[in-house]
Write a protein that binds this DNA or RNA. Structure first.
Length: 344
DNA sequence: AAATCGGGGTC
DNA sequence: GACCCAGATTT
């Protein structure tokens, strides 16, 4: 049997039952694909369900406030996806009468939709013959054909797309795209795949050459930067506190946080206490300050390690523009701050 | 081409 | 600790 027939037969016997696989609705397909970018199926699943419940159609999503969208996205990461999702929903709803583009080229114009996502929607919703190239596809094809191309290079995507296109059955691109990704996710996994039970174990080039664990080749190694955050949680007699929206470029754009003192290294009570008075300009007189966590919480992002301390600042009077503990729960926060609030 | 953007799972 | 996940966008 040829490659695609073997692969598709395997898929039909091993596929997971995922909610976005029981539909060709481009709204649902689009939503799932944005959520699954660099995100595991298990992590994205509850978010897909809550979004489709909260926003049954693209019009419902378009009507929502960005803050509500970010709140539902809270914890999923890469928040530009949520902001782009919302903008694109508004564009589809108002400029296109709710109708999604129906081909790869036009889908590619949407904010947040790149080559992978355009191919996924075009094939799953409209049966366009266009291959998806994601991390799974790189891995499966680089191993099966023993391709040592560095997948971090921009040109690699074209090379693998051309190969995948040749392998696709032109009368059913959707199932092939689903199958190759599922095969990568379940069988041809990154580390120590069980090749003894693989349907391709008599034809996989990497297996024959004992190179399975060396492929795919990926060069980039990212540098991690350390940052030191001191979050100051104001609290008046009624336990009202103050939060602000992050409008700076960089991480967590448009999410909320407590007033922040960022330092070049981990600082002690004395330093932070002085910085609070000199930098934050709170109008209420300070009664006391204490550290909420003795040791910094190390929150690891892909390219930053955040060393976070929370400081509680009790003040006299009533905090202007303060919000209650109940109101706090309605705002979108980075998950590390959300977890802190929940633990208080 | 390289850096940036999250959070969590796995070995 | 290193690497990866149904990648896209900015620099």
């Amino acid at each position: 049997m040829n490659f695609h027939n073997l692969l598709i037969n395997w898929y039909l016997q091993n596929k997971r039952n995922l909610p976005w696989r029981n539909t060709a609705n481009p709204y649902h397909i689009w939503l799932s694909e944005i959520m699954l970018q660099q995100t595991r199926v298990a992590q994205g699943m509850p978010y897909f369900l809550s979004f489709t419940t909260a926003f049954p159609t693209v019009f419902d999503l378009a009507k929502a406030q960005e803050e509500q969208v970010l709140k539902l996205w809270q914890g999923l990461g890469y928040y530009s996806r949520a902001r782009n999702l919302h903008k694109t929903a508004q564009y589809i709803a108002t400029e296109r009468n709710g109708i999604f583009p129906d081909n790869y080229k036009d889908l590619l114009q949407l904010k947040g939709v790149g080559e992978y996502t355009a191919a996924a929607i075009a094939s799953f919703s409209y049966n366009e013959v266009v291959p998806v190239v994601d991390g799974n596809v790189f891995r499966v094809l680089s191993r099966y054909f023993d391709i040592e191309t560095d997948i971090a290079q921009a040109s690699a995507k074209k090379e693998f797309a051309a190969l995948a296109f040749e392998l696709m059955p032109k009368d059913n691109p959707a199932i092939f795209n689903q199958a190759i990704m599922e095969f990568g996710a379940l069988q041809c996994v990154p580390k120590n795949p069980d090749c003894t039970i693989c349907i391709f174990n008599d034809s996989c080039a990497a297996l024959q050459k004992k190179k399975v664990n060396q492929l795919p080749v990926k060069s980039k190694k990212l540098k991690v930067r350390n940052r030191y955050f001191n979050y100051v949680m104001l609290s008046d007699a009624e336990e009202n506190t103050l939060i602000q929206k992050r409008t700076t470029k960089g991480i967590w754009h448009n999410l909320y946080e407590f007033p922040l003192i960022e330092t070049l290294q981990e600082e002690d009570f004395e330093f932070v206490s002085n910085a609070v008075q000199q930098e934050l300009f709170f109008t209420n007189p300070i009664i006391s300050m204490q550290a909420c966590n003795e040791k910094s919480i190390v929150h690891k992002l892909s390219h930053q390690h955040l060393h976070i301390k929370f400081w509680k600042l009790n003040v006299k009077g009533k905090v202007e523009n303060g919000i209650s503990k109940e109101e706090l729960k309605r705002y979108p926060f980075p998950i590390v701050i959300h977890n802190f609030i929940e633990s208080e």
